[in-house]
Design a protein around this nucleic acid. Structure first.
Length: 551
RNA sequence: GGCCCGUUGGUCAAGCGGUUAAGACACCGCCCUUUCACGGCGGUAUCAGGAGUUCGAUUCUCCUACGGGUCACCA
């Protein structure tokens, strides 16, 4: 084909695309940012599902951009109309916002924000086509008239011959069509896709330095990938090259499933005359499934959905901390030294990122969460539990807001000080933890331990009713219980009992247990003294009476 | 199958030629303790295998095994 014909072909193929590359260059001036500022982006397709794994590149992008005085963009990759879901963009923005990931630029629920838009790829067709035409003129792209069936046939032929899959070499039948033949197909109204004319060779390796993975050696790409689909909309690869170039992205942060198409992307940047960008490929989050590991799956694993964490009531900061720990190996150490510092104080470094994929460990998440919750004030915990229950447990919510002071006092048990209680990991556990404080939820669910007779229990409860006086110091309060123990043949200290078990019915702990079961309805509870102080005399007596009837 | 990446205790991992191979979670034991939780102390447990380079390999090279990813007009 002559240069003349190629020029003509470009017009023939995309007659409506009048934008030139000079126009595009004028549309997107270079960014002026401080030295070292990173420009990152999140580029989801609008499928309406935000995966837990999406948090990894998202948080990485956010931290790197914002801690360097850079910019983080949201670009919607809606080039595949089949996959688009209504309301998906809203879900993406809101879910990420929930995890403190806020975009400086890009798609919003209203108008785009920023000077490098549109940030919806479906609205950038003319931009892509300007470059497509340029590639056609340079002989680096050509139309392919294969139908879906044609491509399937090629695929099965390759399967049979055990050849590599793809549109390349002898399988690329439209690669060298003459101008006249192309014209004939076009005149016949045949749809076409625009393919990249790859000069790559499988025998050549491309050395490449990934910011996370380090030095890699990838094989050149020899497949003539589709650049523009038959509807004139680009594939991801072509859009990625053009958008990230003109939007001024400095670091492309994405999952490492993209590593295999990296050679194509590099090729495209070269062909378009763009300077190559820095890439950070992040390993996927894995999950153990029987004997083997696999990617955390949207279909099989409920914890893959971001909504799972909201429903369970994981504190946002706990989830962020857990992700940060997996992302940067020294984050956990930093957190131990700075238990209450905001995570944004931590210096996030690409070189501390893990090269291989890690297993999702919900037990660890729970531990992280307990630590986070233990640093909160009672008031904060109250607010979070209210926020959660308003949505997921309305009855409990009503109880909580009916008397805020009461609830805050409950959450305050064991809180603050050097060694705070670490009991709550998720808000959904709150009800089981402290529900018994509310008469509606109080119920004796535990029977007496075997070593305590019913008679003793009755005697002790009856006597305690007469003794109990609120407002004492904890010391005096416990003195009463100790006396009750010794008066009834129980040892004052567990150690005395252990020394001479035959001399006693039990020890003071057993006496406490009787009261605990009566007052809280169960064998485990936070500090009894504080519980009684919060419940107040009337409720305590009521419950003892109830226990007397029930036991 | 081709191509690419990876492999330190059950999990997350530090390590970047010479270490008693950190730390955290989990587990077990002891201590503290009126229950639970917390906390303290201690313990079990790891360099996938094989060659090579080296005075010396967890660290470097190669091979094997295993695991993962990917091979669309999806992103």
């Amino acid at each position: 084909m002559t240069q003349q014909q190629r020029n003509e072909l470009a017009e023939l193929l995309y007659p409506k695309a009048t934008l030139t590359i000079q126009d595009v260059e004028k549309m997107f001036p270079k960014r002026t940012l401080p030295e070292g500022a990173k420009v990152t982006r999140m580029a989801p397709s609008p499928t309406g599902f935000v995966h837990f794994g999406n948090l990894f590149p998202a948080l990485t992008s956010e931290r790197l951009a914002h801690q360097s005085g850079g910019v983080m963009m949201l670009r919607i990759e809606d080039t595949d109309a089949k996959r688009a879901v209504d309301g998906a963009v809203e879900i993406i923005i809101n879910s990420l916002k929930h995890y403190n990931i806020i975009f400086d630029e890009g798609a919003t629920l209203g108008d785009d924000v920023g000077n490098y838009g549109p940030y919806y790829q479906s609205r950038r067709a003319d931009i892509y086509q300007a470059f497509a035409k340029e590639l056609i003129r340079k002989g680096q792209a050509y139309p392919c008239f294969c139908t879906e069936e044609d491509l399937e046939k090629i695929h099965s032929e390759q399967e049979a011959k055990k050849d590599n899959f793809g549109y390349y070499g002898k399988y690329a039948k439209h690669r060298d069509m003459s101008f006249e033949d192309i014209k004939k197909e076009l005149d016949a109204g045949k749809p076409f896709a625009l393919r990249f004319r790859s000069e790559g060779n499988l025998n050549n390796k491309i050395p490449f330095d990934d910011v996370v993975k380090g030095h890699l050696e990838v094989t050149e790409n020899d497949i003539d990938h589709v650049l523009l689909k038959s509807d004139g909309i680009p594939t991801y690869h072509f859009a990625h090259a053009i958008d990230d170039h003109f939007m001024g992205t400095t670091h492309v942060i994405r999952g490492d499933e993209w590593l295999s198409t990296l050679p194509l992307h590099l090729q495209l940047f070269d062909a378009l005359g763009f300077e190559r960008l820095k890439y950070m490929h992040i390993s996927p989050l894995m999950k153990i499934d029987g004997e083997s590991k696999r990617k955390l799956s949207k279909r099989k694993d409920p914890e893959a959905a971001l909504t799972f964490y909201t429903e369970m009531g994981y504190p946002v900061l706990a989830v962020i901390d857990y992700v940060m720990m997996l992302l940067n190996s020294n984050y956990e150490e930093w957190r131990i030294q700075n238990p209450a510092a905001p995570y944004t104080d931590f210096e996030f470094k690409a070189e501390n990122m893990s090269v291989s994929g890690s297993l999702f460990d919900i037990v660890k998440l729970n531990d992280v969460s307990k630590n986070i919750v233990s640093t909160m004030t009672a008031e904060q915990v109250y607010d979070y539990v209210c926020e959660w229950s308003e949505q997921y447990d309305k009855d409990f919510y009503k109880l909580l807001i009916s008397d805020k002071d009461y609830a805050v006092r409950i959450f305050n048990i064991g809180r603050g000080g050097e060694k705070p209680r670490k009991d709550l990991a998720v808000w959904s556990e709150a009800k089981a933890y402290m529900g018994f404080f509310y008469d509606d939820l109080y119920k004796i669910t535990s029977s007496l331990p075997e070593n305590i007779s019913k008679e003793d229990a009755v005697t002790i409860l009856e006597s305690y009713k007469n003794i109990y006086t609120p407002g004492k110091t904890q010391e005096d309060w416990f003195g009463d219980i100790t006396k009750l123990a010794t008066d009834n043949g129980f040892a004052a200290k567990p150690k005395e009992y252990k020394k001479n078990p035959e001399m006693y019915k039990g020890h003071v702990g057993d006496v406490s247990m009787i009261l605990r079961i009566a007052v809280s309805g169960r064998q485990n509870s936070p500090d009894m003294y504080e519980i009684m102080e919060i419940l107040g005399k009337e409720r305590v007596i009521q419950r003892i009476d109830n226990a007397l009837k029930t036991l």
